[in-house]
């Protein structure tokens, strides 16, 4: 049980501002992903929530109580770090029981709780193992179990899967989702992987260079990015300028009906995701289309990425058409409902 509220956090390292104006509310039992590239300040924020670092300004509120003055051991939040950081001089059982022991639970209670969490994290039978006898994935699961067993109000996870290989990572994601919903622990999950953020959480908070850029559902951030930088972080490209006029976006590509109603007469930036552009190799296939020439292509497995020169500039297209060759003529169409017009006139692009 726990709600987490971060109010206007400013965090410095040696007077150097690292995080600024950071506010975020997480509801009881909610799983929020804090997403951002390496160095954005994600770990720093988690440490402030855990109490390992003091903010220069702002408040950390757990269940309605400001906890800024409480040391980590007095906060009802537990952090899982990027590395497992298991205690090498303890076995798996002892590692998991550590927090319970510190809290003063008796041995019988500890072993009951440990057994339950071992089963939940699919570690049953590994209890007596030494830490160095575990695989990387098992170690990270022990680290998770060690945090979960305390049933904290807030669970903080700092890229817990980034050191695992792809298959194991997918398995662990499922595990974390299952466990989180079973125990209903309020969770702030840090990752630099946008796909992971989208699939793991109910809401995503995007952090760029120490500033919160957008909070919303995974669909919101993916399909309705607040600005070109957010769009770019989610793999967007194809930015172009135009003017809003009576429900239409007038640009080089034509007069496109859009839903962005406000800002009539204003210059705006718009974008369309590479996979939303329709491409055809024969002109008859596509109405409302324009011509382009393939500049180069890159095969990416499920799709091919193609850079196409058009009369008004270059567009990047992600298409199932895998037989494209440089120099080839193609037809492109921009479906109006896939065009996203940013609300602020943006200077970039």
């Amino acid at each position: 049980m726990g709600a987490l509220s971060l109010k206007d956090l400013h965090i410095h390292y040696d007077r150097q501002p690292v995080v600024q104006d950071f506010s975020l509310d997480i509801g009881d039992g909610e799983m929020v992903a804090l997403l951002g590239p390496s160095g954005a300040g994600k770990t720093t924020i988690l440490k402030v929530v855990a109490g390992l670092l003091a903010p220069a300004r702002g408040e950390v509120i757990i269940d309605g109580q400001v906890v800024n003055d409480r040391p980590p051991e007095k906060r009802d939040a537990v952090m899982v770090f990027q590395k497992p950081l298991l205690f090498p001089f303890m076995n798996v059982n002892q590692n998991i029981a550590f927090g319970l022991k510190m809290r003063g639970d008796d041995a019988a209670r500890r072993s009951r709780a440990v057994e339950r969490i071992l089963a939940l994290t699919r570690l049953a039978g590994l209890g007596p193992r030494k830490v160095h006898e575990l695989s990387g994935g098992q170690q990270q699961r022990v680290a998770l179990a060690r945090a979960l067993v305390l049933e904290p109000a807030i669970l903080l996870m700092d890229e817990p899967l980034s050191n695992l290989d792809a298959n194991l990572r997918q398995e662990m994601r499922e595990l974390i989702l299952t466990v989180q919903s079973e125990l209903n622990i309020t969770t702030l999950f840090v990752t630099h992987d946008q796909a992971e953020a989208l699939m793991m959480s109910q809401r995503v908070a995007l952090l760029l260079e120490g500033r919160l850029r957008q909070v919303g559902s995974p669909r919101d951030l993916f399909h309705r990015p607040a600005d070109p930088e957010v769009a770019r972080f989610f793999g967007g490209g194809n930015f172009f300028r135009g003017r809003l006029h009576e429900g239409h976006f007038e640009c080089d590509f034509g007069r496109l009906p859009v839903t962005a109603a406000d800002g009539n007469g204003h210059l705006r930036t718009a974008t369309i995701r590479p996979e939303d552009i329709q491409l055809a190799t024969a002109p008859v296939d596509l109405p409302d289309s324009f011509a382009g020439t393939v500049v180069r292509t890159r095969f990416e497995g499920m799709a091919t990425r193609a850079w196409i020169r058009c009369p008004f500039g270059e567009l990047v297209v992600l298409t199932a058409e895998s037989a494209l060759a440089p120099g080839q003529s193609v037809r492109l169409r921009l479906p109006p409902d896939k065009i996203r017009v940013f609300s602020e006139a943006s200077s970039s692009e």
């Binding site: 855990a50 109490g51 390992l52 980590p72 952090m79 205690f87 510190m102 809290r103 305390l150």
Partner: peptide, 16 residues
Amino acid sequence: NAGGELIDVGRTLKAD
């Protein structure tokens, strides 16, 4: 080498 990070772990696991 090892002390600081493990101490941080201990703190969030409620060790005084």
